[in-house]
Design a binder for these strands. Structure first.
Lengths: 123, 123
DNA sequence: ACGCTATACCTGTCAGTGCGAGGTATAGTT
DNA sequence: AACTATACCTCGCACTGACAGGTATAGCGT
């Protein structure tokens, strides 16, 4: 199975991270693992990708962080959604719905000629 | 109704243009109009956005162009899909399907807590 | 003749975003 | 002692859409 290109993914990683944090507070390293597990076979993000995103989200006040010492005796930076982040997440879901609608419209309009291509698609 | 943000749209304009050209050859000015018509209320692109995209697609050999004098007595640059472009379009549709799958998985996994937000969504 | 609108093309610069390579440090295991 | 997993981080690259602006012509109304 092919992977999602950056091009397609672009602009969606923030929302993916927010959705992970919807399930409860977590920290960077665990978030990458969790996300890659959820997206098994579709997506595999590196740590270098998500840390900047986390910082960006925090700068926007969509998430907040707190250092905490784990049983590991490792320092973890736990992130949680802020109310603003919760609203942003809901809003992003709307954006996805709109994108889906748009894709639907466009593909539908070009349907006659697109069908043969769609037929061959197997994930 | 809100518009799609660049962030969400990112990486999809190329595919949208390709889908327009799937319906037959066309030229820049008409393509913008057509696309904005198909995406009425969701999206409104300016010409300054799509011309660079067309050039980019041509550079990648996904589309090819030919100047032609219209009845208007205006010079129009007609673009058509190349075989490579056709394959790319099919491929991009797969990408969209994958993204949709991914979104589904992620949202589903976080479902318990997400439902209240989804409930409030009306387009 | 004049100005306005629609048609039709174009460029340059900006900001945002994911990627990848690389770096640091520590705990636990072999 | 070496290695792996955990856990954090930064920097520079490439790509992409947005936006402002520029050019030119046909056709219409005044």
């Amino acid at each position: 199975m092919k992977k999602l290109r950056k091009q397609t993914l672009d602009g969606n990683v923030e929302t993916l991270l927010l959705s992970i944090l919807e399930s409860g507070p977590s920290y960077g390293y665990a978030i990458v693992k969790e996300l890659n597990a959820r997206a098994e076979g579709i997506l595999k993000l590196g740590e270098g990708t998500i840390y900047p995103v986390l910082h960006r989200l925090e700068a926007k006040k969509l998430i907040a962080s707190k250092w905490r010492l784990a049983d590991n005796k490792r320092q973890r930076k736990y992130y949680r959604l802020t109310p603003k982040g919760r609203r942003a997440f809901a809003n992003n879901l709307q954006q996805w719905q709109m994108l889906t609608m748009l894709i639907g419209k466009v593909v539908q309009t070009a349907e006659n000629k697109v069908i043969p291509h769609l037929k061959g698609i197997s994930l």
